[in-house]
Design a protein around this nucleic acid. Structure first.
Lengths: 201, 201
DNA sequence: GAGGATTCCCTAACAGTGTTAAGACTGGCA
DNA sequence: TGCCAGTCTTAACACTGTTAGGGAATCCTC
C-alpha cells in the first residue's frame, strides 16, 4: 500500500483521463455561464454522471476551481515564454507584452474572472494553487529585470498599469480594443518615466 | 387614486424609513460576508422580519443591489465634489484624486466589489442605476478637462492607471499602501506624458 | 365611528445550490 | 476464484432566491 510506486497504472490512467474530461467540461460551462455560475449538477450531467460522483475525482467544488486557477497561470506562463524580450527595445517589448496580456485575458472571460477578479464568492486559491501564480509572477519580474526594470515600486507601477488596461478593456469594452490599443502609448509613457534622468551607457 | 399627489405621507415616510434601514443592514452584512455573500434570510432577520417580507420593499435581490450600486456612485460623486481642482497644478490635483479614489475604494470592500468588479454572479446594474454611474464618470471627465486633459485616449489611459492602482491595492495589499503611495509618481508620469511636446502658454 | 381598501407581514412551498451518508455494482489484482 | 478498492448511485440535509395565499393592522373616505 505504501510501498508500491502507484496503485494500478490502468486505474490511475483512467482516473486522470476522467479528471481532465471533467475539467474540460467545467471550462466550457464556465465560459457559457460565468465562472461563478458553474453548477456541479450540470457539470456532472455534461460528463454523464450524477453530481455526488464528482467527489470521487475532486475533494470539493473549490478543488475544481483550484485546478482551473493553476491551469490558467500555467497557460499564462507558457504564453509569456513565447514572447521575445529585447533589452535594446524596452518600449516595444513592453507594448507587445501588454497586448499579449490583454489578449490572453480577452480570450477567456471565465479564466480572467478566476485568475484576476474575486468573481467566485467564498473561494480563494489554496496555497498550492497560489504558489503557481506566484511563480508566474516571479517569472515576469525576472523578465522585467532584463529590461532594466528592477526597482520594486517601478514593478508595482507596471503591474498596476497593465492590470488597469486589461480590467478596463474587459469590463467596459469586451471584444473591442479601446484600451488594448493604448498599450504602446502606455509603454512609452512608462519607459520614459523609469529611465528619466538615467545616463545611457 | 390617480389624482392625489401621493398616498398618505405618513405611510410613505414610514416606508422610506424601513427601506433605508434594510439598506443599512445590507451594507453591514455585505461588509462582513462579501457583497455576493448577502443572504436575504439573514438580511430579513437583521431587521426583524421574514425573508419574503423584504419583497414589499424591494422587487428583488437585484433591486437591492441596484440601490446600493447607485448609492455608491452618489457617494463617490460627493467625495469628488469635495476635492480641490487646481488647473495650475495638475500633478498635485491628480495625485490627490488618485489617493482619494483608492481611499474611497479601501473604505468599503463591499462597495468596491459592487461598483467596480463583477463580484455578484448574474447581476448587473439596471439602466437606471447604470445612468448614475455614467453621470459620475462624466463629472470626472469634466474635471479632467479643467486640467487640460481632454483627449479621449488620454482619459482612458488615466482611468486605466487609477483603476489599476486601486485594484492592485485592494486585491494584493488590502489595508496597506503599497500601491496607494505610488499615486504621486503615477500622476507625474502621466502628466509628463500628456503634456509632452506641448508649448507652455 | 363604520366600511372599505391598502399595506404589511406571515407561513408554506418550489426549484435550485454544494455536500454527506450509505449502499450497490464492477473490474483489476493476488 | 475471491476479494476489495474504486466507481457510481439514490436519498437526504441545509442552504439559496422567490412566489402564492392568507391574516391582520392601519389609513382613508363617507
Amino acid at each position: 500500500m505504501t510501498a508500491t510506486a502507484g496503485t494500478s497504472h490502468v486505474r490511475a490512467r483512467r482516473r486522470e483521463q476522467t479528471r481532465t474530461e471533467i475539467l474540460a467540461a467545467a471550462w466550457r460551462l464556465a465560459e457559457r455561464d460565468g465562472i461563478a455560475g458553474l453548477s456541479l449538477r450540470e457539470l456532472a450531467r455534461e460528463v454523464g454522471m450524477q453530481a455526488p460522483s464528482l467527489y470521487t475525482y475532486f475533494e470539493s467544488k473549490a478543488a475544481i476551481y483550484d485546478e482551473m486557477f493553476a491551469a490558467g497561470y500555467r497557460e499564462l506562463d507558457a504564453m509569456e515564454a513565447d514572447l521575445e524580450v529585447d533589452p535594446a527595445d524596452p518600449v516595444g517589448t513592453l507594448a507587445a507584452s501588454g497586448e499579449a496580456f490583454i489578449d490572453f485575458c480577452g480570450a477567456s472571460l471565465a479564466r480572467f474572472q478566476l485568475m484576476f477578479t474575486r468573481a467566485v464568492p467564498g473561494w480563494e486559491p489554496s496555497p498550492g494553487a497560489y504558489a503557481v501564480s506566484v511563480a508566474s509572477y516571479q517569472r515576469s519580474v525576472d523578465e522585467f529585470a532584463r529590461l532594466g526594470i528592477d526597482e520594486p515600486r517601478h514593478i508595482d507601477l507596471l503591474t498596476a498599469l497593465f492590470a488597469g488596461l486589461a480590467s478596463q478593456q474587459l469590463a467596459n469594452d469586451p471584444g473591442g480594443d479601446r484600451w488594448r490599443r493604448l498599450s504602446r502609448e502606455a509603454a512609452e509613457m512608462y519607459v520614459t518615466h523609469v529611465t528619466r534622468g538615467r545616463r545611457q551607457r
